[in-house]
């Protein structure tokens, strides 16, 4: 029995991801010894910050049996509107204000998604597609398409706050790690705890596994679906503001198209698209692998024009692995 458990652990999706990540790192490091440097870790962390935030949102929604393709649009609105207000309407130099507006916008669209999916019982893909269109079309119509590249000093202060700064000994380049990395870290720990240790978390798994069984068991299915979408909306708002701070750019289209890579990161990490399966750790590994591949292909001498193609292949292989694991798991029941 113990042997079997050990085997199951060593061939689990998460462990296979770990092997792939190690193998990829070794290959890159072999070609470019510079890869093995603290600088790489800091770069990965920096680019992974918002991908991880968005992946957490997506994971919670997919777990509950839904899907959310509206977060890029919601995120764009959530960072564009406060920056528009600050720049064009009334100069309020307050980080609290910026985040509050972003969160409220995320909350409102999250409520809309929750209403469409749980009360009107629309298919989540269609509902969130509609929300996406409403959000991004609405903001463009009402507020136009500008780009705000100046941060108010309060946000700039956050940008300037670094957790650690690594200076490469030979080149003298500095690699700062922004304090905002703590947001996805804390959020990941929190979400992980909620999913494993609270009835709210188990309820999300339950409705993702079988809505009807969850209803019979006494779970409030609608409420749980609502919570998933509202969490996604609110946290998307926060993540979008982080994007704005780190990138010094708020536009109405900056995040558009991110939904695919985010969903892919989740699925590679073992989140089953049909709901009910997935962990924070798996999602983290999925994000790590995709970020790693995106950032380091040039180190392997693969031209930039090929990067999308290669990322696509990684996604494809990752998804095949997950679905193969799922099939293996179900077939075990028949034997």
């Amino acid at each position: 029995m113990k042997e079997k458990n050990k085997y199951a652990f060593l061939t689990s999706t998460q462990m296979i991801l770990v092997y792939v990540i190690i193998a990829f790192s070794l290959v890159v490091g072999f070609r470019q010894p510079a890869f093995f440097s603290p600088a790489t870790i800091i770069t990965i962390c920096r680019t992974g910050i918002f991908t991880m935030c968005f992946a957490l949102c997506e994971m919670v929604v997919i777990l509950s049996g839904g899907i959310d393709v509206s977060f890029p649009a919601i995120g764009c609105v959530a960072m564009y509107v406060p920056m528009y207000i600050v720049n064009r309407v009334y100069k309020i130099d307050s980080a609290f204000f910026a985040f509050a507006v972003a969160i409220i916008i995320g909350l409102l669209f999250g409520l809309l998604n929750g209403f469409l999916v749980s009360v009107l019982e629309l298919p989540p893909l269609i509902a969130t597609l509609a929300t996406s269109s409403v959000a991004s079309g609405g903001v463009v119509t009402l507020l136009g398409t500008r780009e705000f590249t100046n941060l108010p000093s309060s946000l700039q202060a956050i940008y300037n706050t670094n957790l650690i700064t690594y200076t490469a000994p030979d080149s003298g380049f500095t690699y700062p790690l922004n304090v905002l990395i703590l947001v996805p870290v804390v959020a990941a720990l929190l979400v992980s705890w909620v999913l494993r240790k609270t009835m709210l978390g188990r309820g999300l798994y339950a409705i993702g596994g079988d809505k009807n069984a969850a209803r019979v068991a006494g779970f409030n299915v609608r409420k749980l679906q609502f919570i998933a979408y509202v969490f996604s909306g609110v946290f998307t708002g926060i993540a979008a503001m982080i994007y704005n701070i780190l990138m010094h750019s708020a536009t109405t289209s900056a995040l558009m198209g991110d939904e695919m890579i985010t969903i892919a990161a989740c699925v590679i990490g073992g989140v089953r698209i049909t709901g009910g399966h997935g962990t924070v750790l798996g999602t983290f590994l999925g994000v790590l692998l995709i970020t790693l591949v995106q950032n380091n292909l040039n180190m392997l001498g693969i031209p930039t024009s090929w990067q999308r193609f290669v990322v696509g292949i990684v996604i494809l292989l990752g998804t095949i692995l997950t679905s193969w694991q799922a099939k293996r798991s179900m077939n075990a029941g028949r034997a």
Binding site: K197, R202, G203, G209, A213, A217
Partner: peptide, 28 residues
């Protein structure tokens, strides 16, 4: 006939979950 069980949860959790919901537990 459909048992109303959760395919994605473990045996132990499937057995105990309904009771926990009824007790209005917050933590597992």
């Amino acid at each position: 006939q459909d048992f109303a069980v959760f395919p994605n949860l473990t045996v132990a959790e499937n057995i105990a979950l309904n009771g926990e919901v009824k007790n209005k537990a917050r933590l597992v």
